[in-house]
């Protein structure tokens, strides 16, 4: 998303002309933006309404008396966080997500450096394999890994899901970081070598700090991917309350309490809070990361 001030060309048409063609244009955009926001706004408003109100009238009726305090409540959040175990799930999500971002980045950065600046037999082939694995649907891996995890007693553990997310995120991470690291100027790497720096030192002191933009983009992509993931969480963590994450908890709530909208709306909003914060705080990286990562299997 282009967040810089508008510097691009202006249309060289007379202002009357522009005004006439701009009004319908702006109106269309406003309508589209309105339609796109409406579902989320409806959810947010509903999550703040008392249970009885939600069940007896549409959320848009709040606008009849928007400042009447009895219309608003935080009870739904309180309830979904405690009774419906969304609070625990939220912590679990953090616990799952953070290492699932940091570990693949570390491993991928080392590999990307080797692919970019070291010589070893089979390099081109191995890199082609990494690129090929990027679009492999992760459904491919589920059954064999499930059995492997059963043997190793890793099912339903955080360690198990960290490693799974590491494995599934790795091809993309290597690919993205390789793209960045291989484009660093050769003189820098070469001069470090001449100064007697070992490859490890060159990597930790020079290449990693220089690669922060690429790492940040991937980190945001992976963070959102893991946070929003349902399939991997269902398969490797399961739905037990002690380990389950927000997405699978919410999916379970949909099954358990089909039309209890006071619970579901508040629950859904809790799953969205962190992604929305990331979205608004780091928008530029966010877009770059998502665009780059969209090919992930």
């Amino acid at each position: 998303m282009n967040m810089t001030p508008q510097t691009r060309r202006r249309h060289s048409r007379s202002w009357v002309n522009r005004l006439l063609s701009d009004i319908p244009l702006r109106l269309t955009i406003i309508i589209i933006a309105f339609i796109w926001t409406l579902p989320t706004v409806g959810l947010l408003i509903s999550s703040l309404r008392p249970q009885n109100d939600i069940q007896s009238s549409g959320w848009w009726t709040v606008f009849e008396h928007p400042f009447e305090a009895t219309q608003w409540t935080l009870a739904n959040y309180q309830r979904v966080l405690t009774t419906d175990a969304m609070g625990d799930a939220f912590l679990n999500s953090l616990l799952v997500t953070i290492p699932s971002v940091v570990i693949p980045i570390t491993i991928a950065a080392f590999a990307a450096y080797a692919f970019a600046w070291m010589e070893f037999p089979g390099k081109a082939f191995l890199f082609a394999v990494v690129v090929g694995l990027m679009v492999v649907p992760l459904q491919m891996s589920l059954i064999p890994l499930l059995r492997l995890y059963t043997q190793l007693d890793l099912n339903g553990t955080f360690l198990g899901i960290w490693l799974a997310h590491t494995g599934f995120g790795l091809p993309l991470a290597v690919f993205l970081l390789y793209g960045y690291i291989s484009s660093l100027p050769e003189e820098i790497i070469e001069s470090a070598r001449v100064d007697g720096a070992s490859p490890m030192m060159t990597f930790t002191r020079l290449v990693l700090p220089l690669s922060v933009p690429a790492i940040a983009s991937f980190a945001i992509f992976q963070f959102l991917w893991v946070w929003n993931d349902l399939l991997v969480a269902l398969v490797f963590l399961g739905t037990k309350k002690e380990v389950t994450v927000v997405t699978s908890r919410l999916a379970a709530l949909v099954g358990e309490r089909g039309e209890a909208w006071h619970v579901l709306t508040a629950g859904a909003f809790i799953t969205m809070v962190i992604p929305l914060i990331v979205f608004f705080a780091l928008q530029r990286y966010f877009v770059r990361g998502l665009t780059a990562g969209s090919v992930k299997g």
């Binding site: 282009n2 508008q6 349902l230 579901l264 929305l276």
Partner: peptide
């Protein structure tokens, strides 16, 4: 332009599960 784009891009940040609940409603 940036505002309009942000609004339309926003659902991309939400999980498919969250989006499903939104639309189920």
């Amino acid at each position: 332009e940036p505002v309009a784009k942000s609004i339309i891009f926003l659902p991309m940040a939400i999980s498919a599960v969250g989006a499903s609940v939104i639309w189920k409603f």
